[in-house]
Design a protein around this nucleic acid. Structure first.
Lengths: 100, 100
DNA sequence: TTCATATATCTAGAATTATAGATATATTTA
DNA sequence: TAAATATATCTATAATTCTAGATATATGAA
């Protein structure tokens, strides 16, 4: 972890919706329905479910999630039509270690 | 810690100078000279020293430090003419716990 | 007092971010 | 192939943040 990446992560954490998404993804099964196609949460939650829960537009959420992936906070996995997002606990730990 | 405060902290961490200040204040004796009046770092470092080290204007740094204090990241103590700033490790821990 | 120094606040323009609509692309299904 | 669905990107405007100069306030010294 270095200052530049840490600051990029900070930017993601500077918006309530983005921070909230990270909180939801701590326990996806508590906050999202199981996906009709994938029956598990191993790779997280699909973009549509996250978008619907936030109430923001599809393009806004897509931008948010892309940025969160770029700085390493999220890991994205595609299965067919869907992109699933989950937390990258390793980077989050590196970030908190850097801060502490 | 709640989402709103966590996001305010995120805003402070979204700028390299502010993040850098927090890093410097982990070990003030490594990054700043001892103050001519107070000979110790118990209450941190005075505004002027931080301002000089960053190279930004006095007003900018004052604004930064005020915001960092408002969200709890820093603790400010005044001794005479000088305001000293140090990290608020308790809030930082609450923040990293909330994120993790 | 008056002056000098340290810090805070006000104001404003520049830069960046937020956000959505339109459009493009990828993938599955009919 | 064509249509439907999911996601990404482009474009533009609104909102927020960055940053410094000017000014105000607080404190100690002369």
């Amino acid at each position: 972890m270095n200052l530049k990446i840490a600051t990029e992560i900070g930017k993601c954490l500077s918006n309530q919706t983005r921070f909230q998404i990270l909180e939801w993804l701590k326990e996806p099964e508590k906050h999202f329905p199981p996906h009709e196609t994938l029956k598990h949460f191993n790779d997280g939650v699909c973009v549509t479910y996250i978008q619907e829960k936030t109430g923001l537009s599809q393009s806004t959420i897509s931008t948010y999630l892309t940025n969160m992936e770029k700085c390493g906070l999220l890991i994205s996995t595609r299965h067919g039509k869907w992109s699933y997002l989950k937390r990258n606990e390793e980077i989050i730990k590196q970030f908190t270690d850097f801060l502490t």
